[in-house]
């Protein structure tokens, strides 16, 4: 297995940020980039990253399992992560989360049978003032959610 030339270039750019003998510093970015390309981190993807950065595979796996945003099993095309932490909760995150669950017919940690959506519960996004909020595929944040904005968002995500 390998990654696309674009992904590899992205990883190389990250590697260049760190001292030459500290390639391992780029592991988080490499996993992120690999995940964007592959959708999730399969065993061979982790092994690839390990070889690419000259790390023991288990050390890469440690990183992949420590940080919440990596996916270690197949994941829907659109991962929706809702922050349910206290400030968001106070601002109505539970309502939004329940609405999403009901609308998608799945609970947190589940994927719709058509593989379109995965729903996750998240911890504080550091954006509490704009809650309720969710992240789409880790990288795009949607703020001030309400049932209406959720409807709109879901419609956009094919």
């Amino acid at each position: 297995m390998t990654l696309s030339a674009e992904s590899l270039a992205g990883i190389d750019k990250e590697v260049a940020k760190y001292p030459v003998d500290q390639k391992q510093s780029a592991v988080m970015a490499a996993l992120r980039i690999a995940q964007v390309e592959k959708g999730w981190l399969a065993t061979e993807t982790i092994e690839f990253v390990a070889d690419y950065l000259g790390m023991p595979a288990i050390a890469v796996y440690e990183v992949a399992t420590f940080y919440n945003m990596y996916e270690l099993s197949p994941c829907g095309r659109h991962k929706i992560t809702v922050c349910t932490n206290l400030p968001c909760q106070l601002q109505g995150a539970d309502t939004v989360a329940d609405y999403l669950k009901q609308k998608l017919g799945i609970g947190f940690g589940e994927t719709t049978p058509d593989g379109r959506f995965t729903l996750k519960e998240g911890e504080c996004f550091g954006t509490c003032g704009s809650g309720p909020l969710c992240l789409h595929n880790n990288h795009k944040m949607h703020t001030h959610l309400s049932p209406e904005t959720v409807d709109k968002l879901l419609d956009e995500l094919k």
């Binding site: 023991p56 595979a57 050390a59 796996y61 420590f66």
Partner: peptide, 17 residues
């Protein structure tokens, strides 16, 4: 490094890759 401790918090487990 054959053994590591993947996972976080109480989900952390000693294991090989």
């Amino acid at each position: 490094m054959e053994l590591g401790m993947p996972g976080r918090g109480e989900h952390m487990e000693v294991m090989p890759f």
